[in-house]
Amino acid sequence: MAQILINNVHKVFKTPGKDVVALQDINLEIKAGQFVCLLGPSGCGKSTLLNAVAGFALPSSGVITVDGKPITAPGPERGMVFQEYALFPWMTVAQNIAFGLEIQKKDPAEIDLTVNQLLELLHLTDFRDRFPKDLSGGMRQRVAIARVLALDSPIMLMDEPFGALDALTRRNLQDELLRIWNKLGKTIIFVTHSIEESIYLADRIVVMTYRPGTVKRDQPVTMPRPRDPSSAEFNELKRELGRLVMEEQQRHANDEMKLAAVD
C-alpha cells in the first residue's frame, strides 16, 4: 500500500503560438488503499496528471511522491492500464500477463503460478493461449488489468480503462475491479469522464476544471458498496457533480468556438 502526495504540480505544454497550461496548482494527498476518480470534461488535464504520476511526463514544476520518494520515471510499482488496452499483440494472453514478471527475472515456476492465479481471478483461464486480436474489448481490458496485477504494484493507474466498452461489459468490469481492489487493497487513481462511473467506484472524486486544469471539487463518497445507481443519494450526487462538470464542459465548448472564430 502506498500513499501518493501531489504537491503544487504545474504542467505547461509549449506549443507554437501559445503555451497550454494543462495543470495548475494541483495539491492532492491520496491515502494508501484509496480509490480516487479524476473526473472532468475532455481536455481538462486528467491524462496529464495521471501520466505525471506514472512518470511518463513529469510536471513542469512541483513534485509527486510515493511514500515520500519523488517520481522520476515510469516503473512497475505504478502499474498502468491504458484506455487502448496496449496489450502486446504478438504475445498470447498468458505471455502478456507473464511479461512484467519475466522482466523482473522471477523464477519460471513462480511466474506460472502467478499467471494461473490471475487467469483464474479474471476469468480468463479458457483464453490463456489466445492472441489479443481474438478477444473482445472487455476481455482485452481484463488481460490488461491482469498484466498490471501481476506486477503486484501497490498503485494502479487507470486512464479511462472502460471508456470503449458497452454498458453491460462496463458494469461487469467495474464490479470485478471493486472485487479485486477489496481483495488486494491497492491505491487506485482512475480517470473517467463518466459521472456515474466515478460515483459507482470511488471513495473520493476529484473534479477538475478545464484549462487551466485545477481541482474544482474534492468530493468524498461514503455510500456503502455495492452502490445502487437508482438510489436517491446516488442521484443527488450525480446531479451535483453533473452541474460542476457541465460548467467546465461549457467553458471547453466556448473555447472551441473562440478557436473556430479565430480560424
Binding site: A54, F56, A73, P74, G75, P76, R78, G79, M80, F82, E84, A86, L87, F88, F99, G100, I103, Q104, R147, L151
Partner: peptide, 20 residues
Amino acid sequence: IFLRAARNLGASQWTMFTRV
C-alpha cells in the same frame, strides 16, 4: 503505446528492443 506499456512494466532497453 507499446513502448509506454513496456516502460511501465519496467523493461530495460535491451528487453524493449528484443521483446517489443
